[in-house]
Design a protein around this nucleic acid. Sequence first.
DNA 1: GCAAAAGTGTTCTTCGTACACCCATGC
DNA 2: GCATGGGTGTACGAAGAACACTTTTGC
Lengths: 226, 226
Amino acid sequence: MHTTNIIKPLSVDSVIFGFEDDQLKVLLIKRIVDKDSGTWALPGGYIKYDEDIDVAAARILEERTGVKVFMKQLGAFGEVNRFPDKRIITIAYYALVKPRNFALSLEDDASAIEWVNVYDLPKLLFDHGIIIEHALRSLRRRVRIEPIGFNLLPNSFPLLSLQRLYESILNTTFDKPNFRRKILKMKLLIPLEEKQEGVAHRSARLFKFDKNRYDKLIDKGFSFEV
Amino acid sequence: MHTTNIIKPLSVDSVIFGFEDDQLKVLLIKRIVDKDSGTWALPGGYIKYDEDIDVAAARILEERTGVKVFMKQLGAFGEVNRFPDKRIITIAYYALVKPRNFALSLEDDASAIEWVNVYDLPKLLFDHGIIIEHALRSLRRRVRIEPIGFNLLPNSFPLLSLQRLYESILNTTFDKPNFRRKILKMKLLIPLEEKQEGVAHRSARLFKFDKNRYDKLIDKGFSFEV
DNA sequence: GCAAAAGTGTTCTTCGTACACCCATGC
DNA sequence: GCATGGGTGTACGAAGAACACTTTTGC
């Protein structure tokens, strides 16, 4: 990491959500060698002097994890004592990704990187636990009114996967027939010819999210709601 | 203003919403003497080294305007060129206040201060116009699911005032009978014995928002929605 | 009387919810 | 056959939208 030309009292931390094994997870890093050894943390770093903060967040995430994605800002966390010894204010970001699409890569051998169930987190560095809580709250609010959930699923998926996704994010359950009808009525999904394979039950039709269609509907005043 | 012991690349700006004459307004300041003369701006300033950012925002707002209120964070604005010459990242806050409750006071004679209709803004300093847009979007989202609108009204108010408030924030119109029923059904308003006075029509009953009641309903799973 | 807002009543439709039920597939 | 999930049908009730109508007050 470059240490010149950076803004020292300002860091960036990223909460990366992924959906794997029907569980909502976040991407955490653990420094193995230095004094924080043993504590998991959000991927983060310092902003450069001549770099937009959104760009800094994306750069730092990629450097730390190999994940390249555009993120949404969560907000600034600036309690005086959030960081030991020094005053560092951090700007938190979050994003939703498909874990399968990324080969996690580490910048060095001194760290471990892992997808961790968001409902079963280990002890985290500084206020990173609080940051994740905020990110989760924001995710819950947004996921019900914007079709961002699809970012967590493979390009094609059966409807029950979508339902399980919403259930795990919102920590609730839905009636299957009703959920199905509600989603299909929006006409946001393109039914594919493909079917599930190798499952121990009747194979389900796969669907694909139609971003184009969504944009057009939005122009007509449509509003997504789960 | 103190210039020692502050974090220089980090400022705070506040969007203060008020409701006056059936219009949604924001509080703006204009520097009259210096080089920015003639340009309206959001009240803002620098964060101190040993001060929580939320506290800094409240302190700065009070210093600039006399308005003392707790605010909600909107987020950080950090485009490289948002501020001329220097790199300054700002953390924006917003709040909803009752304009009548505040005697606007200026720290010096070099400034003017004013409530300005949010739908008819003058040219603003730096990216302050963008910040207000974001604040308005956030306000619109929140006002429909949290009873924060009452913060903009006097303690007691007729139902039509509430309706006009929502209409001006959401930039829409509601059917009076339906709006009335919807709000009353929530049981969040205490009907008072008082009536409007000096109006050229049948005087309306006044109501008061019942915060206690709201907190209790929330515990029972109630969710506010307009 | 007229204008303006207060306040009540009613109808129609849409939508969410609950749940019964049949279908296909692997073991 | 049985378990598991896929997928359809239906019936009830709550909630929203539209609008007609009566009441009260100042001018």
